[in-house]
Simulated scan of single mutants.
Amino acid sequence: MARLGISVYPEHSSMEEIQEYIRLAARYGFKRIFSCLLSVGERSREEIIEEYSKMIAAAHEHGMEVILDVAPFVFERLGITYKDLSFFTALNVDGIRLDEGFDGLKESLMSYNKERLKIEINASFGNGYIANIMSHYPNKDGLITCHNFYPQKYTGLSLKHFNHCNEDIKKQGLKIAAFVSSQKRDTFGPWPVNEGLCTLEMHRELPIDVQVRHLFATRQVDDVIIANAFASEEELRICSMIDPALLTFSIDFEKELNPTEYKVIYEHEHFVRGDMSEYMARSTMPRVTYAAESVPAANTRDLKRGDVIVINDNYSRYKGELQIILKDMPNDGRRNVVGRIPDNESMLLDYIQPWIPFAFMKKD
């Protein structure tokens, strides 16, 4: 089941702030936490256990899983070996994410750890790294993957590389997590850079709900984690409203909806008709449900890609049908343009396929 997550950084904020953030995120249904040991500096094992254990205890109290980001240099500095992960047992953490890899064999052996920790592999390195690990017959039940986030502007993954990585990982039957970025001012991550913390570069300036809806629209991502802290309550709330299973759009309205249009858009289930046209995606069942109701003609301008329309009374057999326009076309007056898919989520139109269920998001 798809999950939402947050990130916390104990070395950069007070435990009181972190605990309050955990409580808030849990209230909105968030289920996992990412944190980082890559920037712990010269702190001792005992200091790390004392500091991080409080955060982890708070997370577990609210039913949230905690994965800590580590790398070979962290193992070396803290005296940890791939054969003995008991340090993480002392922390009571649920798993570790390997930001940098070992040699493939070690990752495989770690997946059989007696501590039952999840081993999370970096999903952004491409198929060669994952294939190397899989060639050593890891315990797939103990193995998951998670992409990087990228603090530096213009360094995030391209969608092409992201898709390529995910396709190969999914062939192995492994779960995938990826990061989105809060747009709240004064958020932070593990490093002193504040240019957003996203996996995909195309997401860096987008509203957080658009980022989340896009990742779920790929049908490749299982968990979506907000990488920077602390996201606003409104961001947590709007993310919690997203159904991971549905391709979900918002609408910039051009007209006041009449009662039937409102019910067609928000109260009826939608799926794309199987015999899909190149010009539009059709949701035809509303015309059956609301056959006895009126849709007066209004705002019948010519149609552009991304328009959301409801057929009006002048097309009686099809009145009440909802369509998303995929290719510019003239309007003969029988289609009401209720609004448009916002430009900043136009990429979601690329995920429309025959039979795919979809919905529209109310943000108020």
Rank of each mutant, 00 (worst) to 15 (best):
V288H: 14
M276W: 08
T300M: 07
I311P: 02
R301I: 10
N331P: 07
Y318P: 04
M285C: 04
A292F: 13
V338F: 11
R305K: 15
R335G: 01
D313L: 04
V308Q: 01
T284Q: 11
D328H: 08
A298V: 11
V310A: 06
D302K: 10
K304N: 14
A297H: 09
T289E: 02
K327V: 07
Y315P: 09
I324P: 03
M329C: 12
L303D: 00
Q323F: 07
P296A: 07
R287F: 06
N314T: 14
Y279V: 02
A292N: 15
A291T: 12
T300Y: 10
T284D: 13
V338R: 02
D307W: 04
S283N: 03
G333S: 01
N314C: 08
V288P: 06
A281T: 09
L326D: 04
A298S: 07
R301N: 13
G339I: 06
Y315V: 00
N336M: 08
R335A: 15
D332F: 10
L326M: 05
D328R: 04
S316L: 14
Y315T: 04
A281P: 00
M280S: 13
D328P: 07
R334Y: 15
V295E: 01
E293P: 01
R282Q: 09
V310L: 03
I341R: 07
I324N: 00
L326Q: 00
R334C: 12
A298C: 12
K327R: 13
V288D: 07
S316A: 15
G320M: 04
R301G: 12
G320Y: 08
G306K: 03
N299R: 13
K327F: 06
V295Q: 06
L303V: 02
G320V: 01
N314G: 14
M280G: 08
S294M: 06
V310N: 05
N331L: 01
Y279E: 07
D302L: 08
N299D: 03
I311N: 03
D313T: 11
N299Q: 01
D302Y: 07
G306N: 12
K319H: 08
G306I: 09
S283Y: 07
K304D: 11
D307K: 08
S294H: 15
I324H: 06
V338W: 01
N312I: 00
N314D: 13
L326A: 03
G339D: 04
L303R: 05
K319V: 13
P286F: 10
M276D: 02
T289S: 11
K327P: 02
S277F: 13
N299S: 05
A297Q: 10
V310I: 13
D332G: 05
R301M: 13
R282P: 02
P296N: 11
R334I: 11
Y290V: 09
P286A: 03
L303C: 06
L326E: 00
A298K: 14
R317G: 09
N336W: 04
V338K: 04
K304A: 10
G333Y: 03
I309G: 00
Y279L: 12
I324T: 07
R305F: 08
G320L: 09
G306Q: 09
V295T: 06
S277V: 09
N336K: 08
E278C: 13
Y318D: 05
M276Y: 04
G320E: 04
K327L: 03
T289W: 11
A292H: 15
T284G: 12
G339F: 02
M329Y: 02
